[in-house]
Design a protein around this nucleic acid. Structure first.
Length: 419
RNA sequence: GUGAGCGUAGCCCAGUGGUUAAGGCGCCAGGUUGUGGCCCUGGAGAUCGUGGGUUCAAAUCCCACCGUUCACCCCA
């Protein structure tokens, strides 16, 4: 027996209510903020990701699904959403439009890692990106939009954490100071942090091990080492957020996993969290588009994980609207009634009425049981008697009331019922 | 990649060495020669994750593998 591959899953009909709910909220949010949909391929030249995300991060080093196609092209399954958006922005000359260009996407992303709660090899991200504008007002708008998104979903228990990680001018200086601080403690660091010290020093700051955490707590803060421009930018992001009454928590230890971030970084966390809890995160990435071969182009964006959102919708018991049910169920008896029933089903559907037609020549009892378990509001029954008089029996499945209606009038009658 | 827990019908699960592996949900049929929900009766559905070992005897004990869950790393 085959199973869905490790870290992937099927979304069964009863789960789809959640997906539809989240996707619709996402689309209407984007409409509200002037973001337009963009779909990119599910695989890209591997370089799109290796250049964007950069080595030294696990995503590139060990989590990418890389393969060669028959021509020897090195391709990778989409590892994250931002880089492909930037690629499309460059490829289609969207930099010629009035800036910023505001785009959003919903789609799968792939990472080869061990699955656990809220983490999958194929997961789904909703993200939006504003490209071509450096104004800190846009950073604040993106954060406000992220908050708006979670609120509109009915998720109330979350926290926004904010930090600035500077730019390529001021960050290197800070990293030196940071390494300096850690050089006094190298022997006390956990094995992971010893690696981080060399490979990705910023990550030292959010190690959860008690001894490392203590060293991180006393470490110099990046926000004290920002250059003048980064400082002003960060300050005004915060001012705009305050004006919009967005509550946030400054977290000098907040570092995003992807290397392309500059200046503003933020994360949205549920209040009570287990392991893989981050609902979404984002920030500014002013150097990425240049890195991908474009002119220097500032940009800012956000991405959220749909699986984690749905996990929290369930945890917080948010009411989700049910998928619409078919309007009528058609049951039939014996030979001639069946042909008549097929004709009727076809006609009703042409009239826009959603029909489930019984099949399999089961007993009327079985057919009614099926109508009941499908929770359909009314059933149409066609037997010899009805057919010979050109009638159909209409049964209201809630009340159990029945009436006979001429076949010629049933479509109009049902339409009128639904108003 | 590391660590821990768990694998018995589609789903939830009882069974911890001894007959044909029990129950609930769901499914199918009947009780109603043309009527669902409640009730009653019957039925189908399980190589007890896989392989090896211990034993007169293994779902049960041991080992390995696989799968899965959770956590670490990392991230959405």
């Amino acid at each position: 027996m085959h199973k869905a591959p490790r870290g992937t899953f099927d979304i069964l009909p009863q789960e789809h209510v959640y997906w539809k709910y989240v996707e619709e909220k996402a689309a209407s949010l984007c409409q509200l903020y002037g973001y337009q949909p963009l779909s990119t391929p599910i695989f890209e030249d591997a370089e799109i990701f290796t250049k964007a995300v950069a080595g030294g991060t696990d995503i590139v080093d060990k989590e990418m699904y890389i393969f060669e196609d028959k021509s020897g092209q090195e391709l990778a399954l989409r590892a994250e959403g931002t880089a492909p958006v930037c690629r499309a922005y460059l490829e289609h000359g969207l930099f010629n439009l009035p800036q910023p260009v505001k785009l959003y996407y919903i789609g799968p992303a792939f990472r080869y890692e061990r699955p656990q709660s809220g983490r999958y090899r194929q997961h789904h991200q909703f993200g939006f990106e504003a490209l071509g504008e450096a104004d800190p007002a846009l950073d604040a708008e993106v954060i406000e939009m992220a908050r708006h998104f979670f609120c509109s979903l009915g998720l109330s228990q979350f926290l926004i954490q904010l930090n600035s990680i500077g730019c390529k001018l001021c960050r290197p200086g800070y990293l030196e100071v940071l390494k300096q601080h850690y050089s006094d403690y190298t022997d006390r660091l956990c094995p992971d942090c010893k690696v981080r010290l060399v490979k990705n020093p910023l990550r030292l700051l959010d190690c959860k091990k008690p001894t490392c955490h203590e060293i991180a707590r006393t470490a110099p803060k990046i926000t004290d080492y920002l250059c003048r421009e980064c400082q002003l930018h960060f300050q005004s992001v915060q001012e705009y957020l305050e004006v919009m009454h967005i509550t946030f928590q400054l977290n000098p230890g907040l570092v995003r996993g992807l290397d392309y971030y500059t200046r503003t970084v933020f994360e949205v966390e549920p209040q009570e969290n287990g392991g893989q809890s981050t609902l979404g995160g984002g920030g500014r990435y002013d150097d990425l588009i240049e890195e991908l071969g474009g002119k220097p182009t500032p940009a800012v964006g956000f991405a959220a994980g749909l699986e984690r959102i749905i996990l929290n919708l369930k945890k917080q018991k948010v009411d989700i609207p049910a998928l619409p049910k078919p309007d009528v169920f058609i049951a039939y008896l014996k030979g001639e009634a069946k042909t008549e029933a097929m004709k009727l089903a076809s006609e009703l559907r042409k009239a826009g009425i959603a029909v489930i037609m019984a099949t399999g020549d089961k007993s009327l009892r079985a057919q009614m049981r099926q109508a009941g378990s499908l929770d359909i509001a009314c059933a149409l029954i066609l037997g010899e008697e009805e057919v010979s008089k050109r009638n159909v029996m209409l049964r209201d499945m809630r009340s159990g009331e029945q009436k006979t209606i001429p076949l010629a009038e049933i479509a109009a009658f049902l339409k009128q019922l639904r108003i």
